[in-house]
Amino acid sequence: MKKFGACFAWVEDKIVLLATLGVLCSITLSAACRYIFSYDLNGAEEVLGLFSAWMFFIGAVRASRTHNQITADILGVIFRNGVMGFLIRLTRILLGLAICSTMAWWSVEFIAWEMDNGGATPALGIPVLFGKLALFLSFFGMAGYCLRDLASLFMKR
Score class of each variant (00 low, 15 high):
A60D: 06
K156N: 10
D73Q: 11
G131Y: 04
S138T: 11
A32W: 10
L29Y: 10
I58K: 01
A112D: 14
G76D: 11
G141Y: 02
L41N: 00
S52R: 04
S107A: 13
G5M: 06
L17W: 10
I58Y: 06
F140K: 01
G144K: 05
R34K: 13
V83K: 12
V83R: 15
V16K: 01
I27T: 09
I70P: 03
D73L: 14
A112Y: 06
S30Y: 03
P122L: 09
G76K: 09
I58A: 05
A123S: 11
F56L: 15
M115P: 02
L150W: 06
R157E: 12
S52N: 04
A53L: 07
G118S: 04
K132D: 12
I99G: 02
S38G: 01
A120N: 11
N68Q: 15
D149S: 05
S64L: 03
G49V: 01
S30I: 04
A104L: 11
C7E: 05
Q69V: 09
F8Y: 10
W105G: 03
A6V: 06
F51W: 15
F130H: 11
G96H: 07
L124D: 02
W105V: 13
I99N: 07
C7T: 12
S138M: 14
G131T: 04
P122T: 07
T91P: 00
G43N: 01
D116S: 14
G49M: 09
G144E: 07
P127K: 12
G59T: 08
N42Y: 08
G82A: 08
L75W: 10
A120T: 15
S152K: 10
I15C: 00
E114Y: 02
S26F: 00
A44L: 04
S107C: 14
V128Y: 01
L18F: 15
D40N: 11
F4D: 03
M84F: 09
K156A: 15
L133D: 01
N68L: 15
S52Q: 09
W10T: 12
L90Q: 09
C33G: 07
C25W: 11
N117P: 00
S38Q: 14
I15F: 01
A72Y: 10
A143H: 04
E114G: 11
S64N: 04
